[in-house]
Design a protein around this nucleic acid. Structure first.
Length: 304
DNA sequence: CAGACGTGGTT
DNA sequence: TAACCAAGTCT
């Protein structure tokens, strides 16, 4: 064969034990999250996954409930102005996600007759849907056998299979291969394994203070066996926020979000002193389509 | 590939 | 308190 990249072999018997342990643990410990109800549709899964990108579960839950009640289908969301989506996004952060979700809803209506596609490639082609989210929808909504590599799963597999304290900054081809090789053969069990790994990473195998005492695969974990060595990879990028353009954009958009309709430029000038930075941030919001000018002099609004 | 992109809680 | 962390994507 041409590409004989042999992913580091994961021991068969131990792997089977790991599958059972994770699936059993999930059955006993899964949280009753809003997007895990029996009535959840593929669209609901997609909404939850976009909202959960870089955003904690506790903050997403209430907004998710509001969204699916208001826009239960892609068609319902596509029927309203994108500004409504941005407003309903509230303070979840990264508001471009609201815009992309709105655009994805429109694309689903146009290209897929209003049904969220189950095909990985079709999912990836939707705005705001990257490698992780496409796999998450394929697995959580459609029960497919795919590796779902979010930060939780990367950390759990990195520890259990690789003996590493934390995953590298970026996803490597070796990591993908390892995750794929570790997938249970049966699709239904594989889906259970994927969501179980994610839940395990969220509740037990956490970044800062992992609770190995409550871990179902502790005795099979390479990192634990090695004495939980500290992270030794490249420095993790820190993210400052105070005084940045991001904070400025957040302030400006909050004014628009909290207003009934359009607001005068003077209202925006009030929330940020540095005029140069404020203008730059406003321009970028206009470029992104998060804010529009109304046509009236010095007046702004969320996109109608 | 590095950097931009929100927001708030925890250590 | 500054830094880190939270179900990433896009350019």
């Amino acid at each position: 064969m041409v590409f004989s990249t042999s992913p580091q072999q994961v021991a068969g018997p131990a792997l089977d034990q790991m599958h059972d342990a994770v699936c059993d643990w999930y059955a006993a410990h899964a949280r009753p999250l809003p997007w895990r109800r029996p009535t959840t549709t593929a669209w609901h899964v997609m909404v939850s996954e976009i909202m959960l990108q870089q955003t904690p579960v506790d903050r997403v839950a209430p907004v998710y409930d509001e969204w699916i009640a208001r826009w239960p289908t892609p068609g319902a969301l596509a029927a309203v102005p994108s500004g409504e989506a941005v407003r309903a996004w509230g303070r979840l952060g990264y508001p471009r996600r609201a815009l992309r979700l709105h655009a994805a809803a429109a694309a689903i209506c146009e290209r897929h007759d209003g049904e969220v596609p189950s095909d990985l490639e079709a999912l990836r082609a939707l705005p705001g849907v990257g490698e992780y989210t496409a796999a998450a929808v394929a697995v959580f909504a459609y029960g497919q056998r795919q590796a779902v590599l979010d930060t939780n799963v990367r950390r759990v597999l990195g520890r259990a299979l690789g003996g590493d304290a934390l995953p590298a900054p970026s996803l490597s081809v070796a990591e993908r291969a390892r995750a794929k090789a570790a997938l249970p053969v049966d699709p239904a069990i594989s889906a259970r394994w994927s969501i179980g790994l994610m839940e395990l990473g969220a509740l037990v195998c956490t970044a800062r203070a992992p609770v190995c005492g409550g871990c179902p695969v502790r005795d099979l974990c390479q990192w634990h066996a090695a004495g939980r060595p500290a992270y030794d990879g490249p420095a993790r990028r820190g993210q400052t926020y105070a005084g940045t353009d991001r904070q400025c954009r957040g302030r400006l958009l909050a004014v628009l979000r909290d207003a009934e309709g359009a607001v005068p430029g003077s209202a925006l000038r009030q929330v940020w002193d540095d005029a140069t930075q404020r203008e730059r941030a406003l321009d970028s919001l206009l470029d992104d389509g998060l804010v529009v000018t109304t046509g009236a002099d010095d007046e702004y609004a969320l996109p109608g």
